[in-house]
C-alpha cells in the first residue's frame, strides 16, 4: 500500500501537475507547431520526390533513392544534431527552431516519398493511359488524374506518419527547443517530481488520439468506397 501511495505522489501529483500545466501547454503548442509545419513541408518534399521516383528521369531517380535511403536509414536524432551542429562548418548557420524544422521536414519527406510512391503505384495504369490518350501531358495527367486519386489512398498512412512525427519531435530537445517533452523534463528537475512526465504523456495522447481515430475512420470509408 505504501508503494502505491508513493507512486501516486511521485507520478500523479495533481497539485504539481496543476501548477505546471500552463508551461506544459506552451510546450505542447510548440510540439504541434513544429510537427505540423514539418509535416506540411515534408508532404511537399515527399510529393515532388515521389513524382521523380515514378518518372523515368534516371539521374534524378537515383538521387531520390539515395535521399530516401539516407534519411530513413539513419536515426533522426543524428540528423537533427548534424543540421544544427555540423552545417555551421559549411557556412549554414540555422537558428535552433529553423534547424529543427529543417531536420524534421527532410526526415519526414523521406517517409512521405515512399507513402506517395506506393500510392501512385497503386493507381491502375489504365488511368494514365486513358489520360494520355486524350492528349494530356504527363504533368497534367499527374495533376488531374493520379495525384487526386493518390491523396485519398495515402491519407491514412500520411496521418500515421504525422503521429510518428509528433512523437519524434521530442528529439528536438537535444538542440534546446522547449517542446513538450523538454518542458516536462525541466519541470521535473524544478519540482523534483516526475509527475510532469505523466502530464506530458497525457498531452501527447490528447494530440495523437484524435488523429489515430481519424485514420481508422478514413480507412473504413475507403473500404466502403472501394467496394463499389
Amino acid at each position: 500500500m505504501e508503494g502505491l501511495s508513493n507512486l501516486l505522489e511521485k507520478y500523479f501529483s495533481i497539485g504539481i501537475i496543476w501548477e505546471i500545466l500552463p508551461y506544459l501547454l506552451k510546450g505542447a503548442l510548440f510540439t504541434v507547431i513544429f510537427s505540423a509545419s514539418s509535416e506540411i513541408i515534408g508532404i511537399i518534399i515527399g510529393l515532388v520526390t515521389a513524382m521523380i521516383r515514378t518518372s523515368k528521369i534516371k539521374v534524378l531517380n537515383q538521387l531520390a533513392i539515395i535521399y530516401v535511403d539516407l534519411f530513413r536509414g539513419t536515426p533522426l536524432l543524428m540528423q537533427i544534431i548534424f543540421v544544427y551542429y555540423a552545417l555551421p562548418y559549411v557556412g549554414i548557420n540555422l537558428p535552433a527552431p529553423l534547424a529543427g524544422i529543417v531536420a524534421l521536414s527532410v526526415n519526414s519527406g523521406a517517409y512521405v516519398t515512399e507513402i506517395f510512391r506506393a500510392g501512385i503505384d497503386s493507381i491502375d495504369k489504365g488511368q494514365i493511359e486513358a489520360a494520355r490518350s486524350l492528349g494530356m501531358s504527363y504533368a497534367k495527367t499527374m495533376r488531374y488524374i493520379i495525384i487526386p486519386q493518390t491523396f485519398k489512398r495515402v491519407l491514412p498512412p500520411l496521418t500515421n506518419e504525422f503521429v510518428a512525427l509528433i512523437k519524434d519531435s521530442s528529439l528536438l530537445s537535444v538542440i534546446a527547443i522547449s517542446e513538450l517533452l523538454r518542458t516536462a523534463k525541466e519541470m521535473m528537475t524544478w519540482k523534483l517530481n516526475p509527475s510532469s512526465l505523466t502530464a506530458a504523456a497525457i498531452l501527447y495522447l490528447v494530440i495523437t488520439l484524435p488523429l489515430t481515430r481519424l485514420v481508422s475512420h478514413m480507412e473504413n470509408r475507403l473500404k466502403k468506397s472501394d467496394a463499389h
Binding site: G126, Q127, E129, A130, A131, P148, Q149, K152
Partner: peptide, 13 residues
C-alpha cells in the same frame, strides 16, 4: 486519335 479501352478506365474521382 481517340481510344477506348477494354477496362473503361474512367476517372473514378
Amino acid at each position: 486519335i481517340g481510344m477506348v479501352f477494354q477496362g473503361f478506365n474512367l476517372f473514378p474521382h
